[in-house]
């Protein structure tokens, strides 16, 4: 079942020296699965995530044939209707909890606020729900965390709070933009485990934006590889290492690996044709989303 279908998404920024095309004709569909978007900085992966939620600010322009969430075209919604989509149906976890949480508001208050925005329940019920949610993200003394300020939390804790806050309205789709890049490796696996479990249990669709190919190949079901604002390749995550596109191969080879030491790392040689050339895709992975049994 397709939750989200994006066709020919473009994001443009007019500049003094002409229009800059940050995202150029990205199309994909998402079911109840984990979809990874990888690419280097400037490849347009974050903008793709933001454009779905129509979070691109003026003077940026978003165009697309359609961005449909269960058949409803998000581009045709008014700003007021859009506000009902954000958080409630599609929510987003950003990279660094330090910049996403309000520093002068207690953690619990922020989660309760998120909860009350989307549901008509009493404050007390919202508080109980918030504590329950904090427990769901493996925060042990949830009462203490509820009354703490963000600066009293570690990075991993902060990110788990963000995930709790984003999942409390029970959205259908979660967009995670580099959710673990600011975290240590050991904390990273923990946070990913929690996110994976919740997304799986609730049957959500997940768009996981990352620059880390290893992580994406281990964590996601399907991967889009972006370069210069375009999807250059779509493949099954577990077959990422058999990727055909030279860019994907170059990226994979440029990473140092513990198990296979090399004297010199291979350096990516960029090819102008990647900007406009053919898009390699795995026949069974492209096109319609593959449903995942929950």
């Amino acid at each position: 079942m397709t939750l989200l279908d994006v066709e020919n998404l473009c994001v443009k920024f007019p500049t003094r020296s002409g229009v800059f095309d940050a995202v150029r004709g990205v199309s994909f569909s998402l079911g109840r699965e984990r979809l990874g978007i990888v690419g280097e900085s400037g490849s347009g992966k974050s903008l793709t995530g933001r454009a779905i939620l129509r979070l691109i600010r003026h003077p940026g322009v978003v165009t697309a044939n359609h961005i449909s969430l269960e058949g409803e075209n998000l581009l045709q919604l008014s700003e007021r209707q859009m506000r009902k989509v954000r958080g409630q149906r599609i929510s987003m976890v950003m990279q660094d909890p330090k910049f996403s949480l309000n520093p002068v508001m207690r953690v619990g208050e922020q989660i309760v606020e998120a909860c009350l925005q989307h549901e008509k329940i009493s404050r007390n019920a919202a508080k109980l729900k918030a504590i329950e949610m904090l427990e769901a993200v493996s925060i042990r003394d949830s009462e203490r965390v509820f009354n703490a300020y963000p600066h009293e939390m570690s990075g991993g804790m902060g990110q788990r709070i963000m995930i709790a806050m984003m999942l409390i309205p029970n959205p259908q789709i979660l967009i995670a933009d580099e959710p673990t890049s600011a975290l240590d490796v050991s904390v990273q696996t923990q946070v990913l485990g929690i996110m994976d479990k919740l997304v799986r249990e609730r049957g959500m669709g997940l768009i996981f934006i990352s620059h880390d190919l290893n992580l994406v190949s281990a964590f996601c079901d399907r991967v889009l590889i972006m370069y210069g604002g375009r999807v250059v390749e779509t493949c099954q995550a577990d077959k990422l290492y058999e990727a055909k596109h030279p860019y994907t191969q170059g990226l994979l080879n440029s990473m140092p690996r513990l198990d296979t030491p090399v004297k010199r790392l291979q350096v990516l040689k960029r090819d102008a044709s990647w900007m406009d050339g053919d898009i390699a895709s795995d026949s069974d992975a492209s096109g319609k989303a593959i449903g995942r049994s929950v």
Partner: peptide, 14 residues
Amino acid sequence: LDVSVQAEILNLLT
């Protein structure tokens, strides 16, 4: 840095 740039810098350091 990005992985591709990281490779360049690591090679330079080597």
